[in-house]
Design a protein around this nucleic acid. Structure first.
Length: 598
RNA sequence: GGCCCCGUGGUGUAGUGGACAAACAUGCCACCCUGUCACGGUGGAGAUCGGGGGUUCGAAUCCCCCCGGGGUCGCCA
């Protein structure tokens, strides 16, 4: 080793010790004769003093040091002179008096600050990711992610699970997300696909008798990115035999409770984790991944709106739409400009517009509210009674603002969910010191794919229907509830799972309902169905997004901040400039010919 | 594919039709400085205002197209 200690570990117990350190120059303070260097390594920063009276050559070398130079320093740890201690530094009580030093490698001036935490253009950060990762914020995020994965592995191991690796080169399944394909050299014209998740593999492991499987698994989906979505991401994938929903939910609740206590003890949880039905989540929050740290719940006003003479409300309802809204406490004094912004927001989410009703601030209470105190474009078309009825539904008070959207059911929910999120952000309603984890249950097994004119799986085709709903598969598929559950936290979908179908008979029935011919079923899922005929145990599991867990625990807003080398929004790796063209020879070996694009 | 936001010295920002051959902070370079810690002081270099076209007497600023980054809807079994 070129070093005897790390910079960050030194403290007053080391006073008098002769140490050799190595790291990067975080900052240089040159007083002419006396030079101070803040030397940084993975563990932290320590002040090194170069005094020409101790070593003239050291002092000369130090005067040549610049930010991010890699240097080695030998010196004696000393207590700082009285009055010069720095309480802001972890090592601020001591310093290292250098008597020998060397520049191991100089550095160009970096393209951005390593020693300051400021927002930098994402392009630059990703292009120089190795420098970005030197910054304290990213170093801490990498460490936290390591701790998260380590904690998960230890915890799950203690519960009797064994980690099994599954193939990265596997078979394309056209349903679901778009696959990343890998051409085969040995099998001309054929392709592997990278796994979207190890779903079928882990089910086969259950048939194999593994009973309790887990994996920190890399998954790939060729879909558009988001702040919480990357083309490749990491799942905690697990599966158990001989269990029901309760076993999985309990395990996950235990895991997250223990993990937060261990890694983020200052954060508060809602215990036990709330369980909401899908219908309840959609009705109250307009989404199946609500942020439960704040209220602003949605209320359905369709019945009142239908009675009004407001033509927008009436026509939307007559076409099968809904009129719903949220109530912003104290929002009645919102300016025209602010309301316009909200209008644009919901229009961006697909709504035609936003109806705002400001309940007059001059009213002492709702009872004393008069029509003259209400500010709204809809005021001419609503009676005072109707307005009060709406306000009561929200438990609104005078001075509140009602934000109402009339649209098709799915648009109303998307727009109001977005509006709710935005209002909470503006009003700072979400407690930053809380993780509001929750389970969502009772999803429908199927949803109608109107484009294709057939049924599609809400989750995936391996999800078991509730036993009592199985007869409905033939008569009323839309009413069948799946044995599926989602795990959400602070408005993010952290993961989901289900109890699986484990008999070939039921699995075939569901595939047929999804519109597959018997031939397609055999070609795509024959391996799984065959396995089910050899004693498949009842089983189920869950998959959780490790990137999102790390992001939440780190308090970050994108998973890029907890991935060492993420891709940008266009799925490009800017550090390596991937993807990139390949040679004609490579294409030829793979039996590929590139298509001319217009 | 749609919508929204952003692009000005190395970095972060100000400037939204003339007083800008572009300002501030920091970084960089040189010199001075023995207790600093975001050290301080003096001086200096550094920007075709993302690119192209247009409007105008005049464009960083207004309009159009393109490029790049971010957010989001669709998409994500």
């Amino acid at each position: 080793m070129l070093k005897s200690h790390s910079c960050g570990e030194l403290n007053k117990k080391h006073v008098g010790a002769k140490v050799t350190l190595a790291g990067w120059v975080d900052r240089r303070r040159d007083h002419g004769d006396l030079i101070f260097i803040d030397l940084r390594d993975r563990e932290g920063v320590v002040q090194v003093v170069f005094n020409p009276e101790i070593s003239k050559s050291c002092h000369q070398t130090a005067s040549e040091m610049r930010s991010e130079y890699v240097v080695r320093v030998s010196g004696e740890v000393a207590r700082r002179p009285r009055g010069t201690e720095n309480p802001k530094m972890a090592t601020g009580e001591i310093e290292v008096i250098a008597y020998d030093t060397a520049i191991l490698n100089p550095s160009k001036t970096p393209p951005f600050y390593i020693n300051e935490d400021i927002e930098i253009d994402e392009n630059l950060r990703l292009r120089y990711r190795y420098l970005d990762l030197r910054r304290a914020r990213m170093r801490e995020n990498l460490l936290l992610r390591h701790q998260v994965v380590k904690f998960i592995r230890d915890f799950i191991n203690d519960k009797g699970f064994i980690e099994v690796e599954t193939p990265i080169l596997i078979k394309s399944t056209p349903e679901g997300a778009r696959d990343y394909l890998v051409p085969s050299r040995l099998q001309p014209g054929k392709f592997y696909a990278l796994p979207q998740s190890p779903q079928q593999l882990k089910q086969l492991l259950m048939v194999a008798g593994v009973e309790k499987y887990f994996q920190i698994a890399r998954c790939f989906r060729d879909e558009d990115t988001r702040a919480d979505r990357q083309p490749e991401f990491t799942q905690l994938d697990l599966e158990m035999s001989f269990i029901d929903e309760e076993d999985i939910l309990k395990l996950i609740e235990e895991l997250f409770t223990a993990m937060v206590a261990a890694l983020k003890p200052e954060m508060r949880l809602i215990k036990p984790f709330p369980r909401l039905s899908y219908n309840e989540a959609m009705a109250r929050y307009g989404t199946d991944k609500p942020d439960l740290r704040f209220g602003l719940e949605i209320r359905d006003l369709s019945d009142i709106a239908a009675q009004s003479s407001f033509s927008i409300f009436r026509s939307v309802i007559s076409e099968g739409g809904r009129v719903k809204g949220i109530c912003v406490p104290g929002g009645a004094d919102y300016s025209r400009r602010q309301l316009d912004e909200l209008n644009r927001l919901v229009q961006g989410l697909g709504a035609k517009g936003l109806t705002t009703i400001a309940l007059g601030t001059s009213a002492a209470s709702l009872d004393s509210l008069t029509i003259g105190m209400v500010k709204s474009v809809a005021v001419k078309f609503l009676t005072l009674e109707q307005i009060k009825e709406m306000a009561e539904r929200f438990g609104a008070k005078a001075g509140d603002l009602l934000l109402i959207i009339a649209a098709k059911p799915e648009v109303v929910d998307v727009a109001l969910a977005g509006l709710r999120q935005e209002m909470a952000r503006r009003l700072k309603l979400a407690d930053p010191n809380m993780f509001a984890f929750a389970f969502i249950e009772g999803f429908p097994l199927l949803r109608r794919d109107e484009g294709a004119g057939r049924w599609a799986s809400e989750h995936h085709p391996f999800t078991a229907p509730r036993d009592e709903d199985i007869p409905l598969l033939d008569s009323a598929p839309q009413k069948v509830r799946g044995r599926h559950y989602d795990f959400v936290g602070n408005g993010y979908e952290i993961g989901g799972g289900s109890i699986r179908i484990h008999t070939a008979e039921l699995q075939r029935k569901v595939f047929r309902l999804l519109g597959y011919s018997d031939g397609e079923i055999e070609a795509r899922f024959g391996h799984l169905l065959e396995a089910f005929d050899y004693g498949a145990p009842p089983h189920g599991g869950i998959a959780l997004g490790v990137d999102r867990i790390a992001m939440l625990l780190a308090g970050e807003e994108t998973i890029r901040e907890v991935i060492a080398f993420p891709k940008n929004q266009n799925a490009v790796d800017l550090t390596f400039d991937a993807p990139s063209p390949v040679t004609e020879e490579q294409l030829s070996e793979l039996h590929l010919l590139l298509r001319e694009e217009d």
